[in-house]
């Protein structure tokens, strides 16, 4: 497996008026092609910061980070990833199809190419028939699906998702999780997925990165041996529960380590 993302002793310190905040400290991580990697940990553990660093939205202050073997900036200029934010961030003055077209317009795709890709990706996220709707006419779950379609519309092999389903209710979230797995299987993309939820992380991932705060660091990396084909009721199986228990243990260890310091 070739490394899509490779971090070596990666550190990031924010300088604020109240002093330095260490968001990431000594992070070592390899993400291979086609993996589904979840980042889990409490608030302030640096999981979103790490994702933003891969996306060249934050600059590391120490160590090295490569994306597709290049610097994050070059990778961004090559448009090698799609980013899904916590909120849909759809432009309210654009219809759903025009929102999906936004990156295509910016990247200079021709009109027929745009139409073909819009149709294909909206179909992929089950939003066919909603092309002409404006974002406010859609539910929160549908808006987030539209934003995923937007991230899939161009040919990026890497999908960075920052708690995309965090604001949605449990039922919608379950549904979107299983759809996301199908989508991953259909496209073969590498996905980095930030979450607060242990079941979500275990259900989705081939690799789970457990992180802990102050300073933000990786405490455990768990390779999941669950089959790639995952019905929703896999979450009741002993294998699933064993992995979930190990994640929970990792989170607890990170937390107790912290208590002395606070």
């Amino acid at each position: 497996m070739t490394a899509v993302v490779s971090a070596r002793h990666l550190g990031l310190t924010f300088r604020t008026n109240d002093g330095d905040v260490v968001a990431l400290s000594d992070v070592d991580l390899e993400i291979g092609k086609g993996e589904f990697v979840s980042f889990i940990g409490p608030s302030g553990c640096g999981k979103t910061t790490f994702l933003r660093t891969i996306a060249d939205l934050e600059q590391p202050t120490s160590g090295t980070l490569t994306v597709n073997g290049q610097t994050p900036e070059t990778a961004r200029r090559d448009r090698s990833y799609g980013y899904v934010f916590q909120a849909p961030a759809l432009y309210p003055w654009r219809t759903i199809e025009k929102n999906v077209a936004l990156p295509l317009e910016i990247m200079g795709y021709s009109a027929p190419q745009q139409a073909e890709r819009i149709g294909r990706t909206l179909d992929l996220v089950n939003l066919s028939g909603f092309e002409k709707k404006f974002p406010w006419q859609l539910s929160g779950g549908m808006q987030q699906r539209a934003s995923i379609a937007r991230a899939l519309a161009f040919d990026a092999d890497l999908l960075l998702m920052d708690e995309p389903f965090g604001a949605l209710d449990e039922i919608v979230r379950d549904h979107l999780n299983s759809e996301l797995l199908k989508l991953w299987a259909a496209t073969g993309k590498t996905i980095c997925f930030v979450t607060h939820s242990i079941p979500e992380a275990v259900y989705l991932s081939t690799k789970i990165v457990v992180m802990s705060p102050r300073p933000g660091r990786v405490t455990d990396v768990i390779e999941s041996d669950l089959p790639r084909e995952r019905p929703l009721d896999i979450r009741e199986t002993p294998e699933f529960l064993a992995i979930a228990a190990r994640v929970r243990e990792g989170l607890r260890a990170g937390h107790s380590y912290d208590e002395g310091a606070v």
Partner: peptide, 19 residues
């Protein structure tokens, strides 16, 4: 996040302005 989105697309300043 709307500006970040433009940054991830490597949009030019004029694209950020008009779009």
């Amino acid at each position: 996040i709307q500006l970040d989105l433009m940054h991830t697309y490597n949009a030019t300043p004029s694209q950020v302005f008009w779009k």
